[in-house]
Design a binder for these strands. Structure first.
Length: 862
RNA sequence: GCGAAAGUGGCGGAAUUGGUAGACGCGCUGGCUUUAGGUGCCAGUGGGGCAACCCGUGGGAGUUCGAGUCUCCCCUUUCGCACCA
């Protein structure tokens, strides 16, 4: 044992040992309880970032802890390897996306190994490899057969200069990020997967996920957005096909003062032929991007179509408008607008001077004014101004009106979802080819199993932004699997969310000669899934959906992919900038900033180290390239070692909260590890000769054991609730007591010291596995630390003869009393009243009540 | 615009889930160790006041013997919004 803690050297020795022993390779063992701990797989962007380090440390701590509890733990790792950044690198640096991706994977795998994560690397997956994506293609053809995959037109962002489809991310202020051209909406045929067919199950089974965060479940419920309402036909005054709308508020039907249709609605398109204003408005709606933020935050505008509809209940004539806030993709693409009881309708009506008629009122008779703002309530309401349907609450009005509409055959009850079918086509190169062949006579034909995989060529050169497979007629040309005629391949690729929807299952069956095999059911479902909260709806919904698809193809037997979910917070750092007249806003890297503090430690000035330029601090913000405030984990690992980085990320904040990066505090974490090392080093001779038990213990030894076993209770609670910051704090607190403990040459004391060190080393093992491994050996503890049993709380160590109670007077802290542990309420009351300070505060006033909370406090109410 | 969270010392956070607010750490202040140093150790550290004591968990109301914790309203920040992953 070296006198100084030198993590770099120590960690490489321990890692080499794990590698040699194949310590993390696992196999299915029906006799042992399995535990599948999964962290979301990274995109191989080139460098590990702090978000990865945090995510994977949390997963590793849980995995190692579960292993010490005796479970057969699977912790795999892989690469979400397809995606847009590889294409951008290809365009900028003329390197093929495949080459760029594989190099990044090599580098990042090395970084993960340097962190000491306990992965079974024999199960590694890279989603861009044909042996992975061929099963995705196979699965897609099954979905086509079942009618769960289909093709329809959908709108995309179109860059008219680059002649290419843009991702929402590539549209900035309505313009293409490279060309700067105003983006247009364009409809193209695309493949969809029918997730709406599973909407009800996806919604209902959220109730079977008690260990998923409520926030995620709520977001998923809202995202699915099940709403039951009514479809109603509004006849047009001029006759012809009636205008059908969907509404969730039939009770407000009498308040409809206008109708609005989407710019893509047939009625709008028809009107545009004769009306220039309508045509111009529709053209205007076609510019700009397709993202929901853009659509929902634009100013609400519209143009009248010059058509009147007839309210089926009141018989009133109301005008039909085309409006930019009505979406073709939801409901029928047309709405009845009730300005009095809907916020958006109200804004629109106010803008264009359309009437606002109140038809719902508070049930308690209170008067409301709908002229300035809408009143959307539907609980404790009553309908008014609604003819024979007046005087009803929401539910009765809904039922009566729905009944009437059905009797008249002008509509029906309808359940709608906000959730839309999943568009999986991408007009990009670096993705999994959609396994479809288009034949003039046979249409869209799935590629037969024997012809899979449809290989994506990896040795390509980019000419501009065009996808190399779209640009290559030879790649496209093929023959129809059905009739043998000349045919063309689909050149679109899948959304990368498809790959990340089933990787967790493939980890269970490495090398399988099918998509999955029987091994999957040993490991699945995932016991603990860990990843960023930013995935709360999209990935985590696709992940659940795909599992159900696989279940229905009898590939897995569970209903849900993961029983427990932990969403870790973002990693933040301070960012600093100054505004310069020439360069605009200049962001300065945090490690180039000099901070001046006042006598209380408050920051009063920040300057650039090189030239003393005054800087403005943003406060805590997400690490990003644009703000130049990313902290590179590699530098920290090189400087402090993996254990220190792991310890800091666990200690700085609880997993679900954001983590504020602080270089000084990282150094502080290393100080703690160094102190442990130094303590064990300085007692190494005595500890070697320690006996494992001691019969009689003196007061100090008992107190130390009480501290450690008390801390162990906190640690166990912290581990179970994943509050690793409190686990570390409890370790530090108990270690502080140990540092003040002098074992001298007393065998009983030395035995106690060895016992508590054994506890400390084991509870730290999941967090700082390298240091713990070495100390475990140094203490001559039996067996491999990885499989050492988690320490047990010794209840007898916790008992004490006295208890300290807090005394309050009228809820304010006034004193403390020490009484016997078994003292009854009478004794406690007397002791409390006898306290000088308490007596002074009670004074002459009459005591009204005394509340005694056993083991905690006494409150005297005067 | 819609949906979901979070606000506690100079900073990160803790609080046994309605019972001592500030555990643990960083920073800061003073001291010690002849410490090359960004090392190590000791003490102090929510604000005000000499003190008794008073104030204090984003702001405002409420429930309670007692509220950081529960209820309502408001403010601010962060995340997601379907082609970033």
């Amino acid at each position: 044992m070296e006198p100084r803690y030198s993590p770099q050297q120590l960690e490489s020795v321990v890692q080499a040992w794990w590698l040699e022993q194949h310590s993390f390779k696992v196999t299915e063992d029906p006799d042992r309880e399995k535990y599948y701990c999964l962290s979301m797989l990274p995109y191989p962007s080139g460098q590990l970032h702090m978000g990865h380090v945090r995510n994977y440390t949390i997963g590793d701590v849980i995995s190692r802890y579960q292993r010490m509890l005796g479970r057969n733990v699977l912790q795999p790792m892989g690469w979400d390897a397809f995606g847009l950044p590889a294409e951008n690198a290809a365009i900028q640096r003329a390197v093929p996306p495949a080459q760029w991706t594989y190099q990044n994977i090599e580098h990042m795998r090395g970084q993960l190994q340097r962190m000491g994560f306990a992965y079974d690397w024999s199960r590694e997956v890279a989603t861009c490899r044909p042996e992975y994506y061929r099963w995705e293609q196979w699965f897609f053809t099954r979905l086509m057969e079942k009618g769960l995959a289909y093709r329809k037109n959908a709108v995309v962002n179109w860059d008219p200069v680059d002649q290419t489809v843009l991702a929402n991310e590539q549209v900035i202020d309505g313009k293409g990020w490279r060309s700067g051209a105003v983006v247009e909406k364009r409809e193209i045929p695309q493949w969809f997967i029918r997730i709406t067919a599973y909407a009800d199950e996806l919604l209902e089974e959220l109730d079977n996920l008690p260990d998923w965060p409520d926030s995620v479940k709520t977001m998923q419920r809202n995202w699915i957005g099940r709403s039951s309402g009514l479809e109603v036909d509004f006849a047009l005054a001029a006759g012809g096909e009636p205008l059908r709308v969907f509404t969730t508020r039939p009770d407000t039907l009498f308040g409809a003062t206008f109708m609005a249709v989407s710019a893509d609605h047939p009625l709008a398109i028809e009107s545009a032929k004769a009306d220039q204003d309508v045509a111009a408005f529709i053209a205007q709606c076609a510019s700009g991007g397709v993202s929901e933020v853009e659509l929902e935050s634009i100013e609400k505008k519209g143009v009248p179509l010059g058509i009147d509809a007839i309210n089926p209940l009141s018989g009133e004539k109301i005008p039909v408008w085309v409006a930019n806030f009505v979406l073709m993709g939801y409901g029928t693409g047309a709405i009845m607008a009730v300005p009095a009881h809907d916020e958006r309708d109200h804004v629109f009506a106010t803008r264009y001077g359309l009437p606002i008629i109140q038809v719902v009122a508070p049930a308690n008779g209170e008067l409301i004014d709908v002229s300035a703002t809408a009143w959307p309530a539907k609980d404790d309401t009553v309908t008014v101004n609604s003819g024979e349907f007046s005087g009803l609450d929401f539910q009765s009005a809904f039922e009566r009106i729905a009944g009437y509409v059905q009797d008249q055959d002008i509509g029906e009850r309808k359940v709608n979802y906000r959730l839309r079918d999943w568009g999986v086509s991408r007009q990009r190169y670096w993705g999994c080819p959609v396994p479809v062949i288009y034949c003039d006579s046979c249409g869209a034909v799935p590629v037969p199993d024997g012809d899979l995989p449809v290989l994506l060529p990896e040795d390509v050169t980019f000419m501009g932004v065009q996808s190399p497979i779209k640009a290559d007629p030879d790649w496209r040309a093929t023959s129809c699997p059905t009739c043998g005629a000349n045919a063309e391949r689909e050149t679109d690729t899948f959304d990368t969310f498809v790959e990340s929807s089933w990787y967790y299952a493939r980890y269970c069956t490495p090398g399988a000669k099918a998509m999955l095999d029987k091994r999957a059911d040993y490991w699945l479902p995932v016991d603990h899934y860990i990843g960023g909260i930013e995935h709360a709806v999209m990935h985590l919904l696709y992940f659940r959906f795909w599992h159900k698809l696989m279940r229905d193809l009898e590939l897995v037997s569970s209903d849900e992919p993961a029983t427990k979910l932990l969403c870790q917070g973002m990693v933040l750092a301070e960012a600093y900038y100054h505004d310069s007249p020439e360069q605009g806003r200049v962001w300065v890297r945090p490690d180039e900033v000099e901070i001046e503090k006042d006598a209380k430690g408050k920051t009063i000035d920040a300057r650039r180290a090189t030239d003393g330029a005054a800087l403005t601090a943003t406060g805590w913000t997400t690490m990003s390239k644009s703000k130049n405030n990313g902290v590179d984990p590699q530098g920290l690992i090189d400087r402090y070692g993996a254990d220190t980085v792991r310890l800091f990320t666990m200690f700085a904040s609880p997993p679900e909260q954001s983590l504020e990066w602080n270089d000084d505090a990282v150094a502080g974490s290393q100080r703690f590890l160094r102190r442990i090392w130094t303590l064990v080093y300085s007692h190494r001779e005595t500890l070697r000769g320690a006996s494992s038990t001691a019969e009689t213990l003196d007061e100090q030894s008992q107190s130390l054991r009480r501290t450690f076993h008390g801390a162990l209770q906190k640690i166990n609670r912290g581990m179970e609730r994943h509050q690793f910051n409190t686990v570390v704090a409890a370790c530090m607190e108990s270690f502080n007591a140990l540092e003040r403990f002098d074992p001298g040459s007393d065998p009983a004391r030395i035995a106690v010291m060895r016992e508590v060190l054994g506890i400390l080393v084991r509870v730290l093992a999941p967090i700082t596995p390298h240091l713990s491994h070495v100390l475990w050996q140094e203490l001559k503890m039996p067996g491999e630390l990885l499989d050492a049993p988690w320490p047990k709380v010794d209840e007898s160590a916790l008992t004490s003869e006295t208890q300290v109670l807090v005394v309050q007077v009228n809820g304010k802290l006034r004193g403390q009393v020490e009484v016997a542990a078994e003292a009854d309420e009478v004794v406690i009351r007397e002791a409390a009243l006898a306290d000088d300070k308490v007596a002074r505060h009670v004074g002459e006033r009459a005591i009204r009540k005394i509340i005694v909370v056993p083991g905690k406090l006494v409150n005297i109410v005067v």
